[in-house]
Amino acid sequence: MEVIAQRPKSLRDIQFTYCPGCTHGISHRLIAESIDELGLRNKMMGVAPVGCSVFAYKFFNFDMAEAAHGRAPALATGMKRARPEMHVFTYQGDGDLAAIGTAEIIHAANRGEHISVFFVNNAIYGMTGGQMAPTTLPGMKTSTSPYGRDEKDIGYPITACEMLSSLKAPYFIERVSLLSPKEIIKAKKVVKKSLQFNKENRGFTFVEFVSTCPTNWGLDPIKARDWARENMFPYFPVKNFRDKSLNGGE
């Protein structure tokens, strides 16, 4: 009998801790499949963040470190510098990467660290129960913006890909979405490409996932998907921002 679908070797046989309809499981799987396909598993190290994916260090089936909130890119820097023969990625949410960890992500990107960053943007803090994120949309209600995010008071959502694109060093920056099978298949190609560049030690790669949080948005998964399309896409356009492998490379 031919096996046509199975758990990637890069994921351990334990249950995810994510809510029904959450996209973390999908992004984990895309990363794990890509690592398997690129034959990187035995040389891979990952850094888990603080947030809903805090237990990612349990889920991936290779060496993992659990960072303090926002510090994953600094850990990854230390890890890659300590073991240049290995490959490193961080997995971070929007609070982790675009609020408390802004210094770490900007400077890791600016140094062109040879690491891959996977950034899950669902416009809200999930683990702590639905507070305002740096990527929360104007007018969006959360448990700490109960009257809707007022951009005059607290500013506009931070667009991480656009911000990092202002730096010269990053090798690859792309935003993808995980709202339909078609988008997920496309996202997989981007994830794999970024890890291929990582394998070749080309430089800093960054992939942002436009994701959903049905639980804290208070929507069922289908409505959450539609809400993301309608509200997040205008702010967070899905596209490639940087690919130094094109035009003859760097």
Binding site: M45, V47, A65, A67, A68, R71, A74, L75, A76, T77, G78, M79, R81, A82, R83, A103, E104, H107
Partner: peptide
């Protein structure tokens, strides 16, 4: 960042 780089390298 420096101490967290230490954390990463020490983990290795």
């Amino acid at each position: 960042a420096a101490i967290n780089m230490v954390y990463g390298a020490a983990g290795c």
